[in-house]
Amino acid sequence: MSGPADLIPRTPLLKVANLGAGYGGMPVLHDVSLEVYPAEMVALVGSNGAGKTTLLRALSRMLPCSGSIVLNGHELAGMTPDQAFGLGLVQVPEGRQLFDRMTVQDNLLMGSYRRQDQAAVNRDLDKIYTLFPRLTERRRQLAGSMSGGEQQMCAMARALMAAPVLMMVDEMSLGLAPVVVQQLMEVLAAIQRDGVTVLLVEQDVQLALSGSDRGYVMETGRIVHHGQARDLIDDPAVQQAYLGL
């Protein structure tokens, strides 16, 4: 299998090469390589414990790693989380991790904590409230008091307020009703159309692949399949392991 063979060669926005990481000397990730191209939606799928969240933690520099992570020509491997964040690598963490006892509006403004251009921040705030009308109704409400779906919207809106170059969404569908997940997928598609590159990390393989351009399948800390999302859905090995077909 190859990369985006039907397209002229482009420079990847994110290029991860031979990445290794683990906890307390126990290796979790082995020799992970992947590429994300500008304005793509890429799915990173795999079962629970495959190392997806560990990979995200390594990418956002919350975890030490070996190998190389290049975003927009900058090597991230030696950086701190706030430096990587400053280059536009923004994560929507698993379990949302909202500031529960702060209002929705304050949560969104924390997303833009590092941005200096106040006029652009206000413009984005208006744009994001248009994208998430539910959050407009609840802007003065404490984030922790909302429903799971609304909290996930708030977490994604907070990430957008950071003006991401690459938005990494971790287990967006976890614990949410299918109809809510479908709404969130539509929002993600709108975000992608707006020019934001999305790396979607999911246990729900069918959901993630059906909404993405390309996909990577992880198993026990390694990338075992990758390719166009529609090819992966049709791949018998992937079907047997993840899609219950």
């Binding site: 956002s60 919350m62 701190t80 989380p81 706030d82 964040f85 400053g86 923004v90 994560q91 963490p93 991790q97 909202l98 500031f99 529960d100 006892r101 702060m102 304050d106 403004l109 924390m110 997303g111 904590y113 590092r114 907070r158 950071a162």
Partner: peptide, 23 residues
């Protein structure tokens, strides 16, 4: 204020505050 918000955010959720650029 921006700093005041960051102080409250860090008190509530250090992991998320670091993810959003708080040093």
């Amino acid at each position: 204020t921006r700093l005041g918000r960051a102080i409250r955010a860090t008190a509530q959720n250090l992991v998320a505050a670091r993810l959003y650029g708080v040093e």
